[in-house]
Design a protein around this nucleic acid. Sequence first.
DNA 1: TTGTACGCGTTATCAT
DNA 2: ATGATAACGCGTACAA
Lengths: 346, 346
Amino acid sequence: MKKGRVTITDIAKELNVAPSTVSRALNDHPALKKETKQAVRALAEKLGYQPNFMALSLLRQKSNTIGVIVPEITSHFFSAIITGIQDIISNSEYNIMICLSNESYEEEAIIIKKLLKIQVDAVLVSPASETKNFDHFRTLQKNNIPVVIFDRDCPGLEADKILVDDYAGAFQAVEYLIKSGCEKIAHLGGPLNLSTTKHRLQGYLDALENAKIPVRQEYISHVKGFSHNDGLKPTTELLKSSHLPDAIFAMNDSIAISAMHIARKMGMRIPEDISIVGFDDEPHSSYFRPSLSTVWQPVYSIGMLSARIALGRLNSDNADNLAFRQEVFKPELVVRGSSRPFIVPA
Amino acid sequence: MKKGRVTITDIAKELNVAPSTVSRALNDHPALKKETKQAVRALAEKLGYQPNFMALSLLRQKSNTIGVIVPEITSHFFSAIITGIQDIISNSEYNIMICLSNESYEEEAIIIKKLLKIQVDAVLVSPASETKNFDHFRTLQKNNIPVVIFDRDCPGLEADKILVDDYAGAFQAVEYLIKSGCEKIAHLGGPLNLSTTKHRLQGYLDALENAKIPVRQEYISHVKGFSHNDGLKPTTELLKSSHLPDAIFAMNDSIAISAMHIARKMGMRIPEDISIVGFDDEPHSSYFRPSLSTVWQPVYSIGMLSARIALGRLNSDNADNLAFRQEVFKPELVVRGSSRPFIVPA
DNA sequence: TTGTACGCGTTATCAT
DNA sequence: ATGATAACGCGTACAA
């Protein structure tokens, strides 16, 4: 009796053949007698033989692992993207390793070192909000590891990119607010170095300009964070000012919801006194009262496409020569109860 | 010039020493001349040497990977647990591989085969709601892979378990509803083979009995799923009946929120006409109007403790002999606006 | 103090 | 049709 797992050598000994024969039998090598093949397979089955993944990895210099780096997973946004990635990759030969940067550049850099160490075959990444320098991603590329950027762009970095047209989404949202009769529209934005929030701000600004509404700096604030609690203070300050806005366009649903919360606490009616629009269309947003108007993003598709592109790079031999892909998904405004009704003319 | 990564052999050649010497220098072997050690380390540094993870894995027969299986990650509950797990494990030498069962027994079994194949060193798992047989977990154990069960219990399976006292949480919630004056309390429950929802149902039943309130079967329904949409139909049916309940205890926040939605749609006032209490305390629940009364669970701690216990098994040599741990966290009722106020006497 | 040889499990190449 | 051997990169028992 032998301890440990059963190896091809074990099978070989038992059958009085060479290990290489066993290997060939298991891999369905054409030049092999039917009987030997069958005998080997039968015994392998009986002994519960499992190929040793690490030995193969060492031999092929390939970990069969794809790294995925996201800022966090507690929001529906990233968890849904990851679900999309999983669903594609779990049907491939690859495994996926999910890593959380906690929006920290430093942690992101550490993660990349770790992924380099375990020799991942590809990396999908949505950079931390702190990240301004992309050299750590370039390091991956220098090691022949394909990098796919999703959701948050890295200007200047050459890589496959799956993005969302945040500018268009924001523009559409603010244009709608204007058409519904709002004139004093505030924006609760995010970090300026983040492509997504930067573009949302730009969409807001351009929609105002397009309607010849002057931009007022006191209507724009930059929230330090992405969750409910982070929106409370900025909203309070905004609504305490002498010039009350009649609408708020928030950079995401969580902030929009905390804005709704504060507005109501201060005695304002939604949407009669103030319209509120978010971004992301998180599943619970439609269950608020009033239900939250927001901008929907194809989260699941973003994940699936990112994964598919990564697999494409890994499977095609001439992958290196292929031009980088840049796909931009269109978001969609979803009008609900937190903003004044307005039928866009067809 | 050589392609590929630099290995200890490369360093050895360049320095005219044996590979083993390089290995020893890098591992700070005591019996080695200071100068050789320094020379090797200097060159290793210069060449950017990185130990080959796969070679080490093969040598030690250890993947340094811990598998984590959860039903899904889009709810805050599991994503927060995973964040807790990550935070502990990322400070160890281990990597973590997150796998989604999608509440399916079949997928769970496939995942376990995959984890077995890559020879994970330990597995943390919260079983799918479909899972009734735990032999696939036992298979892991037979392969000397420690299994840590969290949140959802596996009756009859001997393993480390990190659970929550769902019974107490439910009992507390329903007892509170009774004391606040509710008499016709309905329950929107989950699958009966799931320990969590089964215990919540039992807590509900016992709290009623404890108050000598007869149980009415038409007040109990079993929701097929865990998300908002799944709660709509059961709630509608419940509230269409001739015997209207004056309270609903839902098995989780999402279902509670869809119950609030339907109740309001049918013209009921919350909490005047009907009290609603959920379970989980998802972050957005406090922002609903009225804010949702619910039962809080220490999600992050569940994750951290599960990870710590797994690491403990992996690091101690006599781990096999150690008795299995079973930790049960206490949940806590959080009374908010969706249920009638009631001050519990001190 | 350092070099040699072997093994971890597998496959590919060369030989028979 | 199948066996022997080398190689992937590293650590270590043994030899020197």
